[in-house]
Simulated scan of single mutants.
Amino acid sequence: MLEFKLTPHHAGLSLWGDRAALERLHGFVHRVVEESDVIVDEESFVLGLAYDVRKAFEGQRSVGERSHFDDEHCRIYGVEILWPVMLIQTALLRHAMGFIPTNALDQAIMYELEYVVGSAARAAMPVAADDVLHRSRRACVAPYEHLDSVLNSRCVYYIETAPGKRLKILPELMETFDPMYAFLAKQGAARRHGLIPASAFDACEADWPDFEW
């Protein structure tokens, strides 16, 4: 079973689960990436999710306990994932599943992941969550190469945003993954209130700076 915790500085969410749930998710992500013609890079950033959950169930991230009854405890494992990364990874996995054979277990794993991410989004930003999730899904109809080319700059921009403002700018940030965003920005739509100008990402191609989750 998967679950979530929100990080204190609004950088992302902590994805938690018992070893069995995380191992299932790890194998599922690898299979979708390997079989998908949508995700064209064998070293895809989507595999970052598989890497993170593997590090978690190997005990190299966070470890805790889940209580079932007063005298029964289950070890669980967690890992922090940045909001823009988690949203795009989840949406792209769902999109890629539309082009490969899947079974009931595949769908169950995907629905559980979507449920946890959606629940975390609604807990973090009750008003804006549906908009953020919709923009994430819309962005993932774009070619994989486009998403791969812009992800890092969006992550750096999000990290460098003051913690108290991160969730407020997340809807507009997810809009910038849409391939139509570049066209709208060039046409002067960046003057629209709330739309992040393309120039904001010009200095965001470096490695991720240190930040607090």
Rank of each mutant, 00 (worst) to 15 (best):
P179C: 05
A11D: 14
R24M: 13
I169G: 05
R75C: 00
E42K: 11
H193D: 03
K168H: 09
A108L: 14
Q107W: 13
V33C: 04
R137M: 14
V63S: 01
G118N: 10
L25R: 02
M110R: 07
E160L: 15
S119T: 13
W208F: 11
A129P: 05
Y144H: 10
V132F: 06
A108P: 07
V38L: 10
H68D: 11
L93D: 05
W83M: 02
R135D: 13
Y115S: 15
H95W: 04
C74D: 07
V63R: 08
P197I: 06
P209Y: 11
I76Y: 02
Y111E: 14
C74K: 05
R94A: 10
A104P: 03
L49S: 02
D37W: 08
T90G: 06
K165T: 06
G64I: 09
E34W: 02
A91Y: 04
S44A: 08
E212T: 12
L47E: 05
L25H: 01
G59I: 01
Y111G: 12
A56E: 01
L170M: 13
S136I: 02
L87P: 01
P126W: 00
A185T: 12
E80L: 03
M1W: 04
F99S: 15
A203W: 04
A121Y: 01
E112S: 13
V46K: 05
M97P: 07
